[in-house]
């Protein structure tokens, strides 16, 4: 009975649809992760700025990202932007924008923590050598914080992959929504469909997230000193 449920994968275009859904998930997640990891480094610098006004602005940014749920941001960007300016963003673009906005704040906070955990004497040694601020970041701060950033940023990346399931609310059908559509359609004839579909989605998420943690372990070794 359970194994006969497997047929759900071979009916119609179900498998192709699941894979297409996975591609949507991957596309949104990976583009967002790539951008917000870079932007997050800069956000982190701004969060440790010597100017109180810059720090305060970044604080407001971070808190507003944290207080307002990602789903609300998705609505604001996907529907709100259209209503306010008549600009019709695609669901995927809205999703990437929100994920970058969210991820950059979170990444920035991770970077801020890493920078502040660095002994103040490290920066002063760099200054005493005559390094410019940019050179201190490039040669002293960045190489030392990268490794400290790894665990938290990998955590953020996998969180972002999983949060892509929210993009269904802006009309983007990713892998989980595809699965639900298939389950609801197949349910009457194949009650075991839910088990198999969710099982496959579990494996797919694992296949996406596991290489990320493998990469992180690799980098932790490479960046060891």
């Amino acid at each position: 009975m359970l194994s006969s449920g497997l047929r759900v994968f071979f009916e119609g275009r179900n498998m192709a649809r699941l894979m297409a859904g996975l591609l949507v998930t991957l596309k949104i997640a990976l583009i967002s992760i790539a951008i917000c990891f870079l932007a997050g480094l800069l956000a982190g610098l701004l969060m440790t700025s010597k100017r109180p006004a810059v720090r305060a602005a970044m604080r407001v940014y971070l808190e507003s990202v944290r207080i307002v749920p990602v789903l609300v941001w998705l609505f604001l960007v996907f529907f709100g932007v259209t209503r306010a300016w008549g600009l019709n963003l695609s669901g995927e673009l809205a999703a990437v924008l929100v994920f970058v906005f969210w991820g950059t704040a979170e990444m920035g906070d991770i970077v801020r923590g890493a920078i502040q955990s660095l002994p103040v004497h490290q920066r002063q040694s760099g200054m005493a050598l005559g390094l410019t601020e940019a050179q201190i970041y490039r040669h002293v701060v960045a190489p030392q914080i990268l490794r400290r950033l790894l665990p938290a940023s990998i955590n953020l990346a996998t969180r972002m992959v999983k949060t892509t399931s929210l993009v269904v609310f802006v009309g983007v059908t990713e892998v989980v929504k595809t699965g639900q559509q298939i389950i609801e359609f197949s349910n009457s004839k194949n009650p075991a469909a839910a088990f198999w579909i969710y099982g496959l989605i579990f494996i797919l998420y694992f296949l996406v997230c596991y290489p990320i943690s493998l990469l992180s372990r690799r980098l932790e070794k490479v960046w060891a000193y």
Partner: peptide
Amino acid sequence: ILVLGLALALTACGNSSGAQTSA
């Protein structure tokens, strides 16, 4: 870099904006 990142995001997704034309 922030501007560049945004531009990347726009181009990366611009071609997949579905059939929704701006109205």
